[in-house]
Amino acid sequence: MRLENASAGAVEPAMVWLRLSSDATVAQQIAKMRQTFPSQALVVLSDIPSDLEALAVLSCSARAYCNTHAGKEVLSKVAAVVEQGGLWIGESIMQRLLAPTDSQRPLTVLAGHAWATNLTEREIEVAKAIALGGSNKEIAAQLEITERTVKAHIGAIFEKLKVRDRLQLALLVKNS
């Protein structure tokens, strides 16, 4: 295990990076990191990433999981998302989290659920579309509104539901 951003006498970083090794379990490595950095956002890097390892990392309260060999642009995006309080996970794990329990039917969400109580009808439509994995552009086309309007609805939804990102919203909608 290698600790990144750790230097004696320095101001504690807001984010730390951990490159996983094969000499200990994910939980052991993260627990050791948490002894030194108990409250910092944790980004975990893996030489051989997998969905199962990603789930283990996220269940240990890490804020991001990605390939050690990711390019500079990707790592910059990871840092930006984590700095803003979001989660960074790969597309395959996102699909696994959002996949309907019955693969034969699409995700259906009724407006009567508690999460939808304070939302407008249009915000509910946008939230459902996000839960189904729609991009802003796709949602705009589907609802025949502009992307700017979609972004405004998303901002209002996040604020009303007290969620930080699309993943949290999708999990809230799907699991209601």
Rank of each mutant, 00 (worst) to 15 (best):
M1G: 12
R2Y: 05
A6M: 13
A8S: 13
A10E: 13
M15L: 11
W17M: 02
L18N: 04
L18Y: 01
S22Y: 06
D23R: 10
V26H: 05
Q29P: 03
A31M: 03
R34K: 12
T36Q: 04
Q40L: 00
Q40G: 05
L42R: 07
V44F: 02
L45Y: 09
I48D: 15
P49T: 08
S50H: 06
D51Y: 00
L52E: 14
E53I: 14
E53A: 09
E53R: 12
E53K: 14
A56T: 00
L58Y: 01
L58V: 00
C60S: 12
C60A: 08
S61A: 11
Y65H: 02
C66P: 04
G71F: 03
G71N: 15
K72Y: 03
K72G: 00
K72M: 13
E73T: 09
V74Q: 03
L75D: 01
L75E: 01
K77G: 12
A79C: 09
A79E: 15
V82R: 02
V82K: 07
E83Q: 14
Q84N: 13
Q84C: 04
G86S: 05
L87Q: 11
I93Q: 05
M94S: 09
A99P: 03
T101E: 14
S103A: 13
Q104E: 11
P106D: 07
P106I: 07
P106K: 10
L107K: 01
T108K: 12
A111L: 06
A114D: 14
T117Y: 07
T120I: 04
R122N: 06
E123S: 09
E123G: 11
E125W: 12
A127Y: 01
A127N: 05
A127I: 04
L132Q: 15
G133R: 05
G134N: 13
K137P: 03
K137Y: 10
Q142R: 14
L143Y: 04
L143G: 06
L143W: 01
E144M: 07
I145Y: 07
I145L: 07
T149N: 13
K151A: 13
A152Y: 06
H153S: 03
G155P: 01
G155E: 13
F158Q: 11
F158S: 01
E159Y: 09
L161A: 08
L161H: 01
K162F: 09
K162S: 13
K162N: 15
V163D: 05
R164L: 04
L167Q: 13
Q168N: 09
L169Y: 02
V173Q: 09
K174H: 03
K174R: 12
S176W: 00
S176Q: 15
